[in-house]
């Protein structure tokens, strides 16, 4: 294992110290392990709070700032955070209008956020939860814990964050978050595994000519393991899965993200985006907005995830609203 770290045990604390030093717009509570806006809570506005295991940076800390999250709770690498963090975040971020927990659908995240919601409720903070479950690699059935939450998290946080910034109430912010999630689908393919500092060994193994199709953000195995394919075939496979789950008709508008899993050069993400654009063009489906880059990573895993949100006018308008965070910034 080769990592630019000081010790596997201190990765999260060290990184949080770095975030604190790098971003004067953020406030990092090293004790409580939460990242909030330096400006404090926005009085009278709903506060969006998210969190999850670390190792997916810039998610979530990189999305804290005006127009997006109010607070992020980073867990240990690939381990969901604990209720204490979420409670501290709710207390620090609540501006009196309640908080929305944006929760990726993993047993650990769900259970910990559930406990935190209870604690925050006891504390007099109104809590609504938006569960993100966009990964079509997992077939939702009685056989699974449900779909995993992946790339759509970025869309939910941006769009619901924009509505919260405009002063909408708790129910409305949660509602748009749920609508964005319901309109979004993701699919990921890994070309190489990743290694958590604590484990010291790759979470899975892939032969030199193999790829993991439908991989999860913790490197959980996906639908199948296949021979490595050209980018266009990987894109087609991923978008086929997405379109099969949520058909999109010619003329419909979307927001599309081609996201690097951490170890994939940006030039390759652009290669993939060209194939994505072609796939959409062939079907007459419009890509109204896009993101190409590393937004929700899995440490140094090579590969990409694809997220498609069928966007209505309100979503697009909120997408375009100003945002000022370390990882996503425009209009500010």
């Amino acid at each position: 294992m080769k990592k630019l770290i000081n010790s596997p045990d201190t990765v999260l604390d060290d990184a949080l110290a770095g975030v604190a030093a790098a971003h004067p717009t953020l406030k990092v509570d090293l004790e409580a392990r939460i990242i909030t806006r330096a400006g404090g809570p926005s009085v009278g506005k709903v506060a969006l709070i998210s969190g999850g295991g670390s190792g997916h940076e810039p998610l979530h800390g990189g999305f804290v700032g005006p127009g997006m999250l109010h607070a992020a709770c980073p867990g240990e690498v690939f381990t969901s955070p604990v209720p204490d963090q979420m409670l501290a975040a709710a207390q620090a971020a609540d501006g009196g209008a309640g908080v929305v927990f944006v929760v990726k659908n993993y047993t650990g995240d769900v259970l910990n956020f559930e406990m935190a919601a209870e604690l925050a409720g006891d504390d007099g903070i109104e809590v609504a939860t938006v569960l993100v479950d966009d990964d079509v690699a997992v077939k939702d059935s009685t056989w699974t814990a449900g779909r995993r939450g992946t790339g759509a998290t970025v869309f939910v946080e941006k769009i619901a964050g924009a509505l919260a910034e405009q002063g909408a109430d708790l129910a409305s912010v949660a509602e748009i978050g749920r609508r964005v999630n319901a309109a979004s689908r993701s699919f990921a393919v890994a070309l190489s595994p990743c290694t958590t500092p604590a484990a010291g060994k790759p979470g899975f193994e892939l032969a030199e000519d193999e790829m993991e199709v439908g991989v999860g953000i913790h490197g959980e195995p996906g639908r199948s393991r296949e021979k490595l394919e050209p980018a266009a075939a990987i894109v087609a496979r991923s978008l086929d899965a997405i379109f099969a789950d949520q058909p999109l008709a010619a003329g419909e508008e979307t927001i599309v993200m081609v996201n690097g899993l951490g170890g994939t050069p940006l030039i390759e993400l652009y290669v993939a985006y060209a194939d994505v654009a072609k796939y959409f063009a062939e079907r007459g489906v419009r890509i109204a907005r896009n993101l190409v880059g590393n937004y929700i990573t899995s440490l140094e895993m090579a590969g990409a995830s694809f997220t498609v949100c069928k966007a209505d006018e309100q979503m697009l308008a909120l997408w375009d609203a100003p945002v000022n965070t370390p990882a996503l910034r425009w209009g500010a």
């Binding site: 969901s80 955070p81 604990v82 047993t107 910990n112 559930e114």
Partner: peptide, 12 residues
């Protein structure tokens, strides 16, 4: 355990 573990195992 709830305060320190996280993941699925912590709350459970």
């Amino acid at each position: 355990l709830i305060s320190k573990v996280g993941g699925a195992a912590g709350p459970l």
